[in-house]
């Protein structure tokens, strides 16, 4: 088993103003891997999608919290975005491009597709009535190269 070089945990209420807070924290945590700006934007966008999903879908009838965990092993950063809300009945369907429950206006249904495009792996575990965990992983390959080029 790999040792974890670093980790973080953050808990916040499922309010939309925390979307920006969560993605900035995640990017700051990952930044020690000497990510490029593009890689940090990939991470921010994927975290934004997962946290927005929790905020929009997990707690339709009550307030709740979102837990963001991060860990770094070598060149790989992993994040878990967990809620304790209603859960997802059909994960396969939820991950289809353009699928949306349609319970709110103008959802594109592209959240999981965006996560999959910007991260190396995306895994979703959900228990109806218990909540959902989204695990995101990205290996940073380009360490220092951008700094060297622009030095």
């Amino acid at each position: 088993m790999q040792t974890t070089d670093n980790y973080m945990e953050l808990t916040f209420p499922a309010h939309s103003q925390n979307e920006a807070f969560a993605r900035v924290c995640a990017a700051a945590f990952a930044a020690r891997l000497d990510c490029t700006i593009d890689e940090l934007t990939d991470i921010k966008t994927a975290i934004s999608e997962a946290v927005t999903n929790a905020i929009v879908h997990a707690y339709p009838a009550r307030s709740g919290k979102v837990l963001l965990r991060g860990s770094i092993n070598g060149n790989t950063v992993r994040f878990e975005i967990q809620d304790f809300g209603c859960g997802i009945e059909n994960i396969e369907q939820a991950m289809q491009p353009f699928f949306s429950t349609g319970n709110s206006a103008e959802r594109s249904g592209m959240g999981f597709t965006v996560m999959q495009s910007f991260m190396d792996t995306v895994a979703v575990h959900s228990q109806p009535g218990q909540g959902t965990v989204v695990r995101l992983e990205k290996t940073i390959l380009s360490q220092n190269t951008e700094c060297l080029i622009h030095a």
């Binding site: 934007t41 966008t45 999608e49 927005t52 103008e106 594109s108 592209m110 965006v114």
Partner: peptide, 13 residues
Amino acid sequence: TLMDSSGIGLLIG
């Protein structure tokens, strides 16, 4: 500086 799938939904609308 950043856009996610909420932006996609907004633009479609």
